[in-house]
Amino acid sequence: MYGFKYHRPQTIEEATKIFAACEEGSYLAGGHTLLPSMKQRLAAPTDLIDLADISSMRGIREEKDCVVIGALTKHEEVASSELLHNAIPSIADLAGNIGDAQVRNRGTMGGSIANSDPAADYPSAVLGLGAVLVSDKREIEADEFFLGMFETVLEEGEILKEVRFPKPEASVYKKFPNPASRYAVVGVFVARTMGLVRVAITGAGPCVFRAREIEEILTKDFSAEAIRNVRLDADLMNDDMHASADYRANLCVVMAQRAVRELI
């Protein structure tokens, strides 16, 4: 990888100040997307701003109707959190199946969400649960956050601090992983709250999206049979060496059915 300057700020304010003064800065969390990208020279920041010392951005806490997870919390910490196992077990389960054990010991929730990789797992929980994303500047609704492939509404230098996940009555994440990378070929997150159903799909399109047609049907009739004949538009799906667009479109419905069966 190319050379860069390394910074290690102690506070969010210090981090954003350094970013503003850099030619082309990049924040560093777990580094499990950024460092491989830099090795391939797909990314070449002039400055890396390591957020590791900002302890206020780490940890999991319960508030009245939600669970708040700090952006720097590692996948393994989420996966093994007793609090989450009781409050929103689907998130712990999702985190425990990201990548492999070594990746989960370094990768962070915030890094995954801010990166908006089309095949990342976390965005489906954010959108499926209708979470609120808290940055150093504002609060953002999940429905507004993801714009496209590797693109979110976060502005230059804005830092994702924590995510507030509302507690659903029931939720589950079902992933069809690529057998080599464990990235989601398709991953479907289904959540039920007060009779309403939200269905968020990752892996299938340029970024995570809600399957409104499936949501509407499930809100009226929460059964796998009810969505059997739904056909999602293959033109909106990713088409690559791992799976064709038609295959992904079909897989979305299959995985949604599996999720529903698990919740009944």
Binding site: G31, H32, P36, L48, A101, Q102, V103, N105, R106
Partner: peptide, 9 residues
């Protein structure tokens, strides 16, 4: 904790 040292600076 086990980590991959090729992906840590």
């Amino acid at each position: 904790r086990a980590v991959k040292s090729c992906t840590v600076l």
